[in-house]
Structure formats: C-alpha cells, structure tokens
C-alpha cells in the first residue's frame, strides 16, 4: 500500500535545475534510502519532503492527500538531522518531550512516552544530561528518539551516520533496523554510503544529477543495474564497451577482446558489465566454453579469505577480480587467465 508518493517534482534554484522530474512511491512501513554522490539532489528531495524547500513543480502526496504546500510543522514527519540539531539549552528529556509539549499532551502522557522513547534508544539514565555532555552516538540516538516520540507518519533521516566512526556506524545501523522493524514506521534515509544503504534498506533510489537513475531492491540494483552509472556506483564492476550485431535471439555482443551471445539486445553500440566475484583466475586457460582473457597481475589486495586482483588486459584496460587466497597470492607481473560465464555478463543500457 502506497504511503508516500512523490510525483514529477522539479526544483530550480535560479537558473540551476536541482531536480529533474523526480517521482518515487514508498509503501507504508518501508525503509527506503536515497543514495547518491554529493550534489546528486538527494538532500533536496529530503528537504522538500520535510517542507523546508518549496517545489518548482510537482506534488508530494501523503496517503493520497496533497501536502506539497504544507509547512513543516503541519506534516507530522520526523526528521533526524545530519548534525542532530539537538536543543543545547534543554536536557535530553526536554528535547524528547518537545514535540509532545507542542502537541499539548498531558504531563503523564509526556512522561510515559519520553521514558519509553529513552528506553527504545537505551538512554534512560542520561535523561537529565545536556546534549553536549553526550557522545556523538548518544546524541544521534537522542535525535532519533526525539523524531520518533510523537509517532510521525514518516521518519526522514539526513545522513544520520556521517559524523560517526565506522564501528559505531555499524552498531547504529543494526539498532536502527531493529527500531524500524519494531515500530513499522515508514523510514526514508539519505546517504552517500552504499554499504549503509544496502545493509538497511528495503528499496534504494539511486540519484545522480537531480534524477532518480534506478529505484529497486539492493539485490536488483546489484545484479540488474539499469545503467553504467548504477553499475559503477553500486559495488565494483568491469565494464566493456562494444557493439551488438544481429537481432532477436541471434544477437551477439562484440568487444575488442571477446564476443558472446546477447539475446534480444538492441543492435548498435552497447555496454556490458561483469562483477569481480563472477570472474575466475587460473594459471592455464580453461577449456569449458567460458569467456577467457589473458591478463597480467598489476597488484593485489589480500584480505585473508580472498584477494582482490587488479589485472591488465591485452588491450591495456584494467580488470578486477576476486579469487580465493588459501594457497597464497599471485605475485605482481604473473601472466594468468581470467574467465567468466556469459550468463554472468550483465547488459547495460
């Protein structure tokens, strides 16, 4: 069931167009992440959802109701700010109680819900502290509690982990997922960290240059990227430019180094991609019908269970591949072969 819908939003800043025809529909209780490099427009989308920025054209619908022109305080959306934006002159308790006091709740009700929120983020014993007396991770959780305590229809998260160190970030991701699962609130997260996005989200919208490039589950984005940008932005990839000749079931892809069948592909210039974990490294060319390329090891990064190789193809392009490293790593300069099955090759538009 669609909860929040963004319809054909355009946003101009003077002559600059920040968003091009952005549309997105989000189901109730879903965890959606807007993922993209900085300047891609993901934060602008969040600000429009929060009500901080007017749109140039387009609509935001909440359960079918048009909220585009509604000021932020009338939207009932929670927002966790990048720098948390906790009120420095209020205690943790008062920060969390703020949205309830705004809504004129009874004192008993406020107390009950603030304490519940504090328990949810495990900060009950810090209730009387000032925010600046807490660590970054704790402040983050206060911000989360404050944004959730009034039971918002949607929770917006603006790069919530960006100020935290790696270990803390990992723990908080777990905690956030747990909270999402237990509350069933719709979460919309903005980040440039693809690991965070893939770890937490039900669906991810990849943004670039003010457009949504692809909106799908993490698995689909990884295995079925719709464009070279998505393929390269999500995970590691080896991209080959080439040409499709023929059509229908007899269409074939030709690149400088190999050719293969590519059924139902559009005739003409084309791009395909192979993930590094789908390639295999051998000292001799395997003779099993897989596509095989002679390569030379340029460098390798050993990570215990496996190694990531950067390989030089005969045409001068790089190729990256993972290989098991139980019996050691091929030294730099070794001539070896890399091979992959044609069904693992992903055609990009």
């Amino acid at each position: 069931m669609t909860s929040l819908e963004i319809k054909n939003i355009n946003k101009h800043y003077g002559a600059v167009q920040a968003l091009h025809d952005v549309s997105l529909s989000i189901n109730k209780g879903e965890f959606v992440t807007l993922l993209g490099p900085s300047g891609s427009g993901k934060t602008t989308v969040l600000k429009i959802l929060a009500g901080f920025e007017p749109v140039t054209s387009g609509q935001v619908l909440m359960e079918g109701r048009d909220v585009t022109a509604l000021p932020p305080e009338k939207r009932n959306f929670g927002l966790v700010f990048q720098g948390y934006a906790l009120f420095p002159h209020m205690s943790v308790y008062d920060n969390i109680a703020y949205p309830l006091r705004v809504r004129r709740q009874s004192k008993a009700m406020i107390d009950e819900r603030v304490l519940a929120a504090l328990d949810l983020v495990q900060l009950r014993k810090f209730a009387n502290r000032r925010p600046q007396e807490l660590s970054g991770g704790q402040q983050q959780r206060v911000a989360l509690a404050r944004a959730l305590v009034f039971k918002p229809d949607v929770l917006l998260l603006d790069e919530p982990m960006s100020a935290l160190d790696k270990q803390l970030r990992h723990d908080l991701q777990e905690e956030l997922r747990e909270i999402h699962r237990s509350l069933g609130t719709t979460f919309i997260n903005v980040t440039h960290d693809q690991e965070e996005a893939m770890h937490m989200s039900d669906r991810i919208a990849i943004m670039d240059h003010g457009q949504i490039k692809q909106y799908d589950t993490a698995h689909q984005l990884y295995r079925r990227p719709a464009s070279r940008f998505v393929a390269e932005f999500v995970g590691k990839s080896n991209v080959f430019q080439g040409e499709v000749r023929g059509s229908g079931s007899s269409a074939r892809f030709y690149s400088a180094s190999f050719e293969m069948p590519l059924a139902d592909a559009q005739t003409g210039a084309s791009t395909v991609m192979i993930r590094p974990e789908d390639a295999e490294i051998t000292t001799t060319a395997p003779n099993d019908g897989r596509i095989t390329l002679p390569v030379q090891v340029i460098s390798s990064t050993y990570s215990g269970d496996r190694a990531l190789y950067t390989l030089l193809q005969s045409d001068g392009a790089d190729f990256i591949a993972y290989a098991p490293a139980r019996s050691g790593v091929f030294p730099d300069g070794t001539d070896i072969f890399v091979s992959f099955a044609s069904q693992d090759v992903i055609a990009l538009a």
């Binding site: 901080f52 920025e53 000021p71 932020p72």
Partner: peptide
C-alpha cells in the same frame, strides 16, 4: 547555504 534560504517558506 545561507540562513535565509533554509528558512521555511512563507517567512
């Protein structure tokens, strides 16, 4: 980002 710009609209 300027302060004025970050103000909610209608300011």
């Amino acid at each position: 980002m300027s302060h004025a710009k970050s103000q909610p609209h209608g300011s």
